[in-house]
Simulated scan of single mutants.
Amino acid sequence: MTDLGSTILINAAALFAVILALWAYSVKIRDVSFIDAFWAFGMVLLACATWAQSGSPGARSHLLLGLTALWGLRLTLHLWTRWRAHGEDPRYAKIMGSVMEKKGWSWSKTSLLSVFLTQAPLLFITCLPA
């Protein structure tokens, strides 16, 4: 397998593991709203993972990692603070309620399939250029 292929697989597996851990936390607190804060932080994590796996990162790699980290950490802090101050996001409550009503799913199944496992591939695809 090429270095790029193994990097992509490692990043995908790591993201999937983190998403499952976040889902377990969401089940415990019965709120999925913090996923917005993770979206930005997830980009930082994937950029760090890619940088760490590159053999000898050059100036462009350092710049990409630095800019991603600055942007992502700032946005993560903003969204996390907003979530902690205002609680559950009404958009997610509406989505969760609608899906649970239509499909008859439990809260945990709905949060996994309708929030976390839909966000993970989108985050991964968005980060592929990095």
Rank of each mutant, 00 (worst) to 15 (best):
D36L: 07
L77C: 15
L117H: 15
R84G: 04
G42Q: 01
A21H: 09
S61M: 11
G97T: 02
W51D: 10
P57L: 01
T81D: 12
R74P: 00
G5I: 15
M96N: 10
E101G: 10
L9E: 03
I19T: 05
L45V: 05
Q119C: 04
S54V: 11
L122I: 14
S111L: 06
A17Q: 12
L112H: 01
R84Y: 08
F38H: 03
L15N: 06
V18R: 05
W80V: 03
W80R: 02
L70W: 10
A59Y: 11
D89Y: 06
R91K: 10
A40N: 04
P121Y: 13
I125K: 07
W23E: 03
A24E: 02
K102Q: 03
Y92K: 06
F116A: 03
R60P: 07
A52G: 12
F34T: 00
L45F: 04
D89P: 02
G55A: 15
G72F: 02
S26G: 01
V27W: 01
E88L: 05
G87V: 10
T110A: 08
D89A: 08
L122P: 13
R30V: 11
T50Y: 04
R74Q: 07
W80F: 09
D3W: 07
L20S: 00
A37K: 08
A24L: 05
D3N: 14
S108H: 07
Y92G: 03
V44L: 13
L112E: 00
L123G: 02
D31R: 00
C48V: 11
G72H: 03
T110H: 02
L73K: 09
L67D: 10
V27L: 06
